[in-house]
Amino acid sequence: MRVGCPREIKNHEYRVGLTPAAVREYVAHGHDVWVETKAGLGIGADDAAYAAAGAKVVATAKDILEKCDMIVKVKEPQPSEWCLLKDGQILYTYLHLAPDPEQTKGLIESGVTAVAYETVTDERGSLPLLAPMSEVAGRLSIQAGAVSLQKANGGRGILLGGVPGVAPGKVTILGGGVVGLHAARMAVGLGADVVILDRSLARLRQLDDLFAGRVHTRYSSLQALEEEVFSADLVIGAVLIPGAAAPKLVTREMLSGMKKGAVIVDVAIDQGGCFETSHATTHSDPTYEIDGVIHYCVANMPGAVPVTSAHALNNATLHHGLALADRGLGALVEDKHLRNGLNVHRGRITNKAVGEALGYQVHSSESVLAVA
């Protein structure tokens, strides 16, 4: 199979879908790999490194998108990319379709088979291809929040860890999953006062045991949510419903009860965000202010640390990527966990959460693959 990796074109996105090490694996499996020139510069991998790994370095993304059988990316295709995709191709990347009707329509019209990293599962019901970027984003959320809290950046002027004789800042984390866990680890490491809200008592017990009293846990009732958001200096949005739009937990009205200069970091923005006032921002212009509350809603947070995040992502995606390259659609038929990653196939939506969010008829992945 001819496998292609174009350079990412989203604002300040420096990650790459295939590292040179990953290219070597595909080549060892007998595949031709095409990589767009300069695709790996953000992680310090030049064209020579890709050529040495066995890739063909090509001049434009157009060559890759039009001529390769399988496209491996990091972020969702942009309009200039999805218009070049075609029936019979496999697209393997993050998609986050539920809050993105334009991309969804573009992929449907292209006829491509689109496999989304964020909905591939494993035998435990976890999301193994989403996890590494959730880990990175969770840790980055505290860094970004700490910087945004500085007075010169519009924040309250709070040092999260405090100093002797001065209380630390308070961090409220909405959601105790992978993002929430890693955000809490960073915040605790800085010495902040941390509380995690979640609706799974089992998960709250796990977190309580893990942090051994260094983090407070609360069941996420409406009252608890208000109390913890209103008293926080930094609020991290870390909720996830796989494939679906994120629930709006914090309303516009609730901002009036928050501290002036408090900061919101909405890690769920890829799925539409869990704050009513959230809209996607970029690394070039990451924050905005509403009702005195600073919002940080960068939709590709891990892109800020591409060396770490690109290698972590490739470690997670390589196994399934090789299966798709080796066996094509047969890999989806044979592996139910990989099949859960199928979101669009030849003009049909196959992910229930996406279909419900955008009003499309949903077809079972088994039925559409049987037709293929």
Rank of each mutant, 00 (worst) to 15 (best):
L97P: 02
E135R: 15
T60D: 11
Q103K: 10
L129K: 02
R124Y: 11
R124A: 12
I71M: 08
S134W: 03
D46T: 15
E81V: 07
A55N: 06
A98Q: 01
Y50F: 15
Q89L: 03
G42K: 10
C83Q: 15
Y117N: 02
V58M: 00
V57Y: 03
A114I: 06
K62W: 07
M133A: 11
A39K: 10
M70V: 12
K62M: 06
K105C: 08
G88N: 12
K56F: 07
E135S: 13
P79F: 14
A98E: 01
Y50H: 06
P99F: 06
L130Y: 01
R139I: 07
D69K: 10
K86D: 11
K67F: 09
L140D: 12
L97R: 00
S141I: 12
Y94P: 00
G138P: 03
G44K: 12
A55T: 02
L41N: 14
I108K: 09
Y117C: 01
I142N: 03
D47I: 08
K56A: 14
V72H: 10
A51D: 09
A48F: 06
E118C: 02
V74W: 02
Y94F: 14
A116Q: 03
G111M: 02
Q89K: 02
S110R: 08
L107E: 02
M70K: 05
L107F: 01
A53H: 00
G106D: 05
G42R: 10
R139L: 09
T121S: 12
W82M: 15
V112D: 01
G88P: 12
L140S: 13
A49W: 06
L107W: 08
E118L: 02
V58W: 01
P99S: 09
D122Q: 12
D87M: 13
L140C: 11
T119P: 00
S126F: 04
A137L: 10
A52C: 09
T104M: 15
A52G: 03
